[in-house]
Amino acid sequence: SKDTIRINGIDIDVKDLHEEWKRLVEEALKRGDEELAIELLERALKE
C-alpha cells in the first residue's frame, strides 16, 4: 500500500491511516467517487 493517495490531483499523506480506511478510500477512488473518498478521509483523520 502506498503512503499517499491522489484525490483531485492532490497527493494526501495517508501513511498514518489505518489500513482499513486506506482500502475504503482506494475503493471509492476506483469507482470514481472522489466525494466519498474525501468524506472517508476526513472521517479517518478524525479518529
Rank of each mutant, 00 (worst) to 15 (best):
E35H: 12
R31N: 13
E42P: 00
D13H: 08
S1F: 12
D33W: 07
R6A: 08
K22T: 07
E27P: 00
R31I: 12
I5P: 01
D13L: 07
S1H: 10
K22I: 15
E27R: 04
S1T: 13
D16P: 05
R43E: 14
E27L: 09
L41R: 01
I7T: 01
W21D: 09
R31G: 11
T4Y: 08
K22V: 15
E39Y: 11
W21K: 03
I5C: 03
G9F: 03
G9W: 03
H18C: 09
E47G: 09
T4H: 07
N8P: 02
L40W: 05
E34P: 11
E19I: 12
T4E: 06
I38E: 07
A44N: 02
I5E: 02
R23A: 12
S1E: 14
K2P: 15
R43Q: 15
D11V: 09
E39F: 10
I38L: 15
L17F: 06
T4Q: 06
R6G: 04
L45Q: 11
D16N: 14
I38C: 11
L40I: 13
A44T: 01
S1Y: 12
T4S: 08
I7E: 02
N8H: 09
E42M: 09
D13W: 10
R23I: 11
I5H: 03
K15T: 15
E27T: 07
R6I: 10
E47I: 08
K15D: 06
D33P: 01
K46R: 13
L45M: 12
K15Q: 10
D3C: 05
L17T: 02
R6F: 07
R43K: 13
R23N: 10
D13Y: 10
K15V: 06
T4R: 03
E19T: 11
I10F: 07
W21F: 09
V25I: 15
D3Y: 01
E47C: 14
T4I: 14
R23M: 12
R31Q: 13
D13Q: 07
L24R: 08
V25A: 03
K30F: 13
E35K: 15
D13V: 09
L24G: 03
I5L: 10
K30P: 00
L45D: 07
L36G: 10
E19W: 13
E42D: 12
A37E: 00
K22P: 01
K30E: 13
K15H: 12
R6Q: 12
I12W: 15
L29N: 01
E35F: 10
D13M: 07
D33H: 08
G32H: 06
E19P: 15
V14E: 02
R43L: 15
V25N: 00
K30R: 14
A28W: 03
R31P: 00
E20Q: 11
N8M: 05
E47N: 08
E47P: 06
D16W: 15
K22H: 06
E42T: 08
E34G: 06
L41F: 05
K46G: 12
D33G: 03
L45I: 11
L29Y: 05
I5R: 00
A28P: 00
G32L: 04
D16H: 13
L40C: 03
G32N: 07
I12V: 11
K2V: 14
R31T: 10
E26W: 15
T4M: 07
L24V: 07
N8T: 03
R43A: 13
L45S: 08
D16F: 13
E35P: 11
D16K: 09
L29A: 04
L24S: 04
E42Q: 11
G9P: 01
R23P: 03
K15N: 09
L17C: 02
G32P: 01
N8E: 05
R23S: 09
E42R: 12
E39G: 06
K30D: 13
L17R: 01
E42S: 08
E19C: 04
K46C: 08
K46H: 10
R23K: 13
L36F: 09
K15M: 07
K22M: 10
K30L: 13
D16Q: 10
L17P: 00
E35L: 14
